[in-house]
């Protein structure tokens, strides 16, 4: 699936700024995201990338600027003009959010199957057999043995928890998924497996993704386009391979030259 023939953006962010008191989080950010595109936001800690992600996903109200989103009915309202209930409905159905720490996206005290099935219930599915069947199907797609469906996530390894969180997000067939350092804090081999899995799912499902990472290798593998942030501002953006192979700004050059060669 690709974005050919789709002639309007899925999300449009215009002049977005967020200040914490007088301290800027992100400043004057504008961009468009089109269906099927994967956008990476990179930069070091404190550059404002997480603040931006939280504003885009309506978890944080910006100080100024708008985030317009193409609803399934064809309208494109500013998220912050929507009511709280509408926003919550979007978050639980049309969007996914993969947190760095799976515990932030999972309920550790209910079974893996119940975690995965929860979103289906949120969109109105009530048939227990169907929910369980979808849940087991999704566990398989993220390479978790279906025999673990009744186990609690706290009995899972870090990598399994992350894959479970991914399944929880994708089961409701979202159009847009936000990811905050989806492979942060995992062993390299576990990380590679998650990246493979994400890459495959994103292209099979034609998902649009906004992924925040400080790891340029993750950005290279997953994203089509990239924005580099520093001190709250986007200082360079373009095709991922272009920004990584021929960075223009001093800070982007520093980031790229800091990648460890193995």
């Amino acid at each position: 699936m690709n974005s050919a023939g789709v002639d309007s953006p899925l999300l449009r962010c215009s002049d977005l700024s967020k200040y914490y008191g007088r301290q800027p989080g992100c400043i004057d950010v504008s961009f468009e995201l089109w269906p099927g595109e994967v956008l990476a936001i990179v930069g070091e800690s404190g550059s404002g990338k997480t603040t931006l992600l939280n504003c885009l996903s309506a978890n944080l109200e910006p100080t100024s600027g708008t985030v317009e989103y193409a609803m399934r009915d064809g309208t494109m309202p500013n998220l912050f003009d929507l009511g709280e209930a509408e926003r919550r409905f979007l978050m639980r159905t049309d969007w996914g959010f993969v947190h760095q720490n799976p515990a932030d996206g999972l309920r550790m005290a209910v079974s893996a199957g119940a975690n995965v099935g929860e979103r289906l219930m949120a969109v109105g599915e009530r048939h227990y057999g169907k929910i369980r069947h979808s849940a087991s199907d999704w566990l398989e797609r993220v390479e978790i043995e279906t025999g673990r469906i009744d186990d609690y996530p706290r009995t899972f390894s870090g990598g399994m928890r992350q894959r479970l969180q991914i399944a929880c997000n994708l089961i409701s067939a979202p159009r847009l998924v936000f990811m905050d350092e989806p492979t942060g804090g995992l062993d390299v081999s576990v990380q590679a497996r998650i990246l493979d899995l994400l890459r495959g799912l994103v292209s099979d499902l034609g998902l649009s993704v906004i992924v925040v990472t400080h790891d340029l290798a993750v950005a290279r593998l997953l994203s089509h386009r990239m924005m580099v942030m520093k001190d709250g501002r986007v200082i360079e953006s373009g095709l991922t391979d272009q920004v990584l192979d021929d960075p223009q700004e001093a800070y982007s050059q520093l980031l790229v030259s800091s990648i460890l060669q193995v």
Partner: peptide, 9 residues
């Protein structure tokens, strides 16, 4: 070649 491909600016 890389400039034609848009890989280099």
């Amino acid at each position: 070649l890389k400039m034609i491909y848009g890989n280099y600016r």
